[in-house]
Simulated scan of single mutants.
Amino acid sequence: MRRCEQKGTEYAMRILVLNGSPKKKSDTFRMTEAFLRGMDKEQENVIDVINVIEKNIAPCKGCFGCWQKKDGHCVIQDDQNEILDLYVKADVIIWSFPLYCYSMPSHLKAVLDRTIPLVKKGMVEESNGTIHHEALVDFSKIHTVVISGCGFPDWEGNFDALKQMCNTCFGNLEMVCVPEAPLLNIPEAAIVAEPLLESFEKAGAEYASNLKLSDETKKILETPMISKEEYLRGING
């Protein structure tokens, strides 16, 4: 257990949620909310939710001023430094967003691009030959969950580029990629959407206990809610 600085109470984990949906009625965030309910079921966590679309976050200028200061902050004076302060304190960071052009929305990608103040200019080579920038903070203590929904009726081929990027950028990673996400906000689809949300809540409880999801759990979460043919009829009808 850890102690919450603000409240003076004990809590299990500090969780930072980066909500990348540009819409208030977000399909993907419904899954994330269910996941968070599961994480909170058996333990009290401190959860910070950032609705990124509401923040002023400029694109990275590539000036490398952060590498000169080495204080973990960006030289651009906008809302990114607030996020960086939460980022380094987090035990778990949840990136929640709809799939845009086979990756994350541009306003959320700006957040990722501007985490560069958390590394140094110098590079290190791992035993497997991988070369990366030396870390300014201890990333080994940060666990990452990516929850992404898309409007396509299947998984194959649609999340491949995103998976490659996330596997390269994040350590201690769990990814859940969900097709047919628009069904989550269609009242007539509640009969298939609600069981998925219940599964996300169970998955959150599992993750809170193990900081890991089983292959079986991920398969349940990523299985399309209805057949491809039925989904396409609804989209194109």
Rank of each mutant, 00 (worst) to 15 (best):
S227D: 14
A205E: 03
P179S: 10
F200K: 04
I186Q: 09
L213R: 03
E174L: 01
A205L: 00
L184P: 03
C177F: 03
K212A: 14
E201V: 09
V192E: 14
G204H: 10
Y207P: 12
V176I: 14
S214T: 15
V176T: 12
G171Y: 04
S214D: 09
P195K: 03
C177Y: 06
G171N: 15
A193K: 08
V192D: 12
D215E: 10
V176W: 10
Y207R: 06
E188L: 14
E216T: 15
P224Q: 11
K219C: 11
P187Q: 05
T217F: 00
K212P: 01
G171I: 11
E194P: 06
E188W: 13
I191Q: 09
M175H: 00
M175L: 08
D215R: 05
V178T: 02
L211R: 15
V178Y: 01
V176L: 02
V178G: 00
L197E: 10
V178W: 02
L196G: 05
K202S: 13
L211S: 12
E194H: 14
E216P: 11
L183E: 09
P187D: 13
S227I: 10
A208R: 08
E174P: 00
L173W: 11
L196M: 14
C177M: 09
P224K: 06
D215M: 02
E180L: 01
P195A: 01
G171M: 10
K218I: 14
D215G: 07
L221H: 03
E198F: 01
L183W: 14
M175Y: 00
P187W: 03
Y207W: 05
L213Q: 04
I186N: 07
P224L: 04
A203T: 07
E180A: 01
N172C: 10
E174V: 15
I191E: 07
E180R: 02
A181D: 08
A203D: 09
P182R: 02
A190V: 03
T217E: 00
S209A: 14
G204M: 09
P187T: 09
N185Q: 05
A203P: 11
P182W: 04
E206G: 09
E201H: 13
A208G: 13
A193I: 08
E222V: 06
E198C: 02
G204V: 08
F200N: 11
S227V: 07
A190Y: 09
L184Y: 05
E188D: 15
L221N: 02
A208K: 06
L213K: 05
T223G: 05
I226L: 10
F170N: 11
I220H: 06
K218Q: 07
D215Q: 13
P195D: 05
T223Q: 13
C177P: 00
E222P: 05
F170Q: 09
K212T: 07
L173E: 13
A190T: 08
I186D: 05
V192K: 09
F170E: 12
A203M: 08
N172G: 14
A205G: 03
E174F: 00
L184T: 08
A181G: 05
G204T: 09
